[in-house]
Design a protein around this nucleic acid. Structure first.
Length: 468
RNA sequence: GGUGGGGUGGCGGAGCGGUUGAACGCGCCGGUCUUGAAAACCGGUAUACCCUUCGGGGUAUCGCGGGUUCGAAUCCCGCCCCCACCGCCA
């Protein structure tokens, strides 16, 4: 969530930020509620201080009088009781006043909190303006020497490619029909070499960030409480995207939610902690199953492995000191990690700078990495390199969040002067599968219908060189 | 699922309803002593928000929420969580 002090100083930054992201939120109302809340809180505190002061003064007096009351009789007794009553009058008055303020506060605070959580992080100044992914800006491309996406697949490899759908069907790598039978639309079984390839990519990705980049591997909960979803910034905006386990309806204390990304688990780890500054940056990676309802995506990418309800992902996060330069540095570093990962896999990719409208509420900046998918049908209106089939498909996403996420998570460290500072956080996909299997299968297919196993994956496939 | 026991500061652990943000111990930081270290001794050690003439002042927080009371860590109600044992179990 945003820093309310900044909001008070310059609400326009947040008005413009929400507008740029196309998020409808009443910033002015938040400013107003915040003012009201602060005024009421100040009033309450003053009255409360007076009440406490009176209490200390009156308490012993009442005690003494009550002691006298025991031995007193007749008119003396009445006089003492009147004294006690008189003493109690003023604090009782204050009590009523405080209760009245409390009632107003109790009305305002939930609205205030809800709006506060809903105000998005303004896009960073160097993020290009735009309404939709169509306005995203390509930054750079890479491709292996043996495949240039600017040329047609036929020109590159000398035969007409199959789509990944055809490949997995012909090679019996995925069983969609039974997946759907068992779990509904967007469900699937990976089988045989399909399942092995999936595990191979994930393991390669995890080993890579852990062994070569010093990330700490974690196996983490993927079923989490609401706080973790709110804390990481996926709720309330993305509530519809999450599977909700209504444990409370069965008598349990809390409902649970399935995470849509390992980011939730990795970032939730140190929630409500004051971290040792010397331990920063924290670099964590996890391989986890991700669950997404894909609400609002009905009819979109319905076929194949591109958009599914359940997948596995190696995710990396960095939690660092609150320093813009450092944040930017780690963003670039994480992107570099993914680039070299894709280069080892020899998959053509491009970096795309997401525009303001494509950022989502929590990000200040986001860079997507898209792999070339020869079997992908170009989105209507988009113009890839040439008029051939095939298109770029998003496989990775690298976000820079400043302290927006860590403020929600209440994750801080102590600086050299001893005061607490909210951390910065970043996250990036290392590999999400089975989506990444699409470019692998399509790029590595052979004329005879078989698929060559990328060299870097062979150690994870018992040395196997071909599928089919 | 059954039965019992608990939730207090970084940790352990006290706490007749009234200067208790909270004894004491440990840890941590600073100092004295020491050639250095240890030990010993002395001092300091929560977070958030608000106000400030920048000295400081105030409020909240003892699992969470509500209630009783002039006043609640302490009493009452509801909820959550944890631990132990038994049962079941990858």
């Amino acid at each position: 969530m945003i820093d309310l002090k900044l909001l008070r100083q310059d609400p326009d930054v947040f008005r413009r930020g929400a507008l740029a992201k196309g998020i409808d939120v009443d910033v002015d109302r938040l400013v107003n509620l915040d003012e009201q809340r602060r005024a009421l809180t100040a009033e309450r505190e003053t009255k409360r201080a007076e009440q406490k002061r009176l209490s200390k003064e009156i308490g012993p007096q009442i005690g003494t009088l009550q002691g006298q009351l025991k031995s007193a009789q007749g008119p003396q007794r009445d006089a003492i009781q009147k004294k006690i009553q008189a003493l109690q009058e003023k604090p009782a008055e204050l009590k009523t006043e405080i209760q009245s303020v409390d009632r107003t506060l109790a009305e305002i605070e939930p609205q205030w909190k809800e709006l506060w959580l809903a105000v998005p992080q303004p896009p960073d100044r160097d993020v290009p303006a735009g309404d939709s992914p169509a306005d995203n800006v390509e930054l750079r491309r890479w491709h292996p020497s043996w495949f240039d996406p600017d040329k047609s697949f036929v020109d590159n490899k000398g035969f007409v490619p199959k789509t990944h759908l055809e490949l997995v069907r012909d090679l019996n790598l995925v069983d969609f029909e039974r997946g759907v039978k068992m779990a509904g639309t967007r469900s699937y079984f990976l089988r045989g070499d399909g399942a092995r390839l999936h595990q191979a990519v994930l393991r390669l990705a995890l080993d890579y960030v852990v062994n070569e980049h010093g990330f700490t591997a974690l196996s983490a909960p993927v079923i989490v409480r609401e706080e973790a979803m709110v804390g990481t910034g996926f709720f309330p905006a993305g509530r519809d995207q999450a599977y909700h386990i209504e444990e409370s309806k069965r008598g349990a204390g809390h409902d649970l939610f399935l995470v849509g990304t390992g980011e939730v688990s990795l970032m939730g780890l140190h929630g409500d902690e004051i971290l040792d500054a010397d331990s920063l940056p924290l670099k964590y990676a996890t391989v986890s199953t991700c669950f997404r309802r894909e609400a609002g995506a009905a009819g979109k990418d319905t076929a194949g492995l591109f958009r599914v309800h359940q997948f596995d992902k190696v995710e990396q996060v960095v939690i660092c000191k609150a320093d813009e330069a450092e944040s930017r540095h780690w963003h670039q570093t994480m992107i570099g990690i993914v680039e070299s990962f894709l280069q080892r896999l020899e998959l053509p990719y491009r970096l795309v700078q997401c525009c303001t409208g494509d950022l989502g509420p929590k990000n200040a900046d986001m860079i997507d990495i898209e792999c070339w998918m020869p079997g992908r049908t170009p989105a209507p209106g988009s113009a890839p390199g040439s008029a051939q089939a095939g298109d770029w498909g998003e496989t990775h996403s690298a976000s820079r969040l400043y302290d927006y996420q860590c403020r929600r998570l209440n994750m801080r460290y102590r600086d050299s002067s001893g005061s607490t500072v909210i951390c910065h956080s970043l996250n990036n996909t290392v590999a999400a599968s089975p989506r990444i299997l699409i470019p692998i299968l399509e790029m590595y297919q052979n004329k005879d219908g078989s698929v060559t196993v990328p060299e870097v994956l062979r150690p994870y496939m018992n040395g196997q060189e071909r599928i089919g």
